[in-house]
C-alpha cells in the first residue's frame, strides 16, 4: 500500500467513525462499516477509530478480536461458508465441510472455506453461503455448480 493510499484509508476510516459519533455505543456499527467498505480492519484503522471515538487502542483492539465478523486480514477473492451447527450436521454437514476444505484449491484461485454456526436455515440443511448468498440443501455437486464461474 502506498503512503497516499494509506492516508486515504485512514481518512475514510475517520470519516466513518465521525458519522456514528452521535449514536450510543457506536463501535460495532463503525467496525461493520469499515469491513464493508474496506474488507477488513487494519492496525491503522484501530488507531484512527480509537482516536475519533475517544477510546483506547486496547479497547478497540479488544472488540475487534472478540467478534468473528471483524477480520484483520484482507478477504479472499471468494468465500464459501458452511454451517457446522447440529441441525446441518444431522444431514451430513461435517463431511461436506471437511471435503470442501480438502478441495478448496479445485474450486478456484483464492477461495476461502469458512465455518459458520447456524444461518437459521435449519430445516433445509446443509446450509451455507457462497460469496454472501444463502443456499440450502448443499452438496458437493451443488457447490461445484454455484462456484463454476470462479474457475
Amino acid at each position: 500500500m502506498t503512503t497516499a493510499a494509506a492516508t486515504d484509508r485512514v481518512a475514510l476510516v475517520r470519516a466513518i467513525a465521525q458519522q456514528h459519533l452521535t449514536e450510543r455505543g457506536p463501535l460495532l456499527p463503525v467496525l461493520h462499516e469499515v469491513v464493508e467498505e474496506l474488507g477488513h480492519v487494519a492496525r491503522e484503522d484501530v488507531e484512527a477509530i480509537a482516536d475519533v471515538l475517544n477510546l483506547s487502542v486496547a479497547e478497540v483492539h479488544g472488540v475487534v478480536s472478540f467478534y468473528h465478523d471483524f477480520r484483520t486480514t484482507p478477504p479472499a477473492a471468494h468465500r464459501v461458508a458452511l454451517c457446522r451447527g447440529e441441525a446441518c450436521q444431522s444431514v451430513g454437514a461435517e463431511e461436506l465441510y471437511a471435503e470442501t476444505r480438502g478441495r478448496s484449491a479445485d474450486l478456484g484461485d483464492g477461495v476461502e472455506i469458512a465455518e459458520v454456526f447456524c444461518l437459521g436455515n435449519c430445516a433445509l440443511g446443509p446450509s451455507g453461503t457462497v460469496d454472501g448468498r444463502l443456499h440450502g440443501r448443499l452438496s458437493a455437486d451443488r457447490i461445484d455448480a454455484l462456484t463454476e464461474g470462479w474457475r
Partner: peptide
C-alpha cells in the same frame, strides 16, 4: 447488528455488545 458471537444471545453479553464492548 451483532458480529458473529454466539454468546451475545445471552442477555447480559448482548447488553455489553450493544454498548460497543466485547
Amino acid at each position: 447488528v451483532g458480529a458473529g458471537a454466539y454468546i451475545c444471545g445471552e442477555e447480559s453479553s448482548m447488553l455489553d455488545s450493544l454498548e460497543g464492548k466485547r
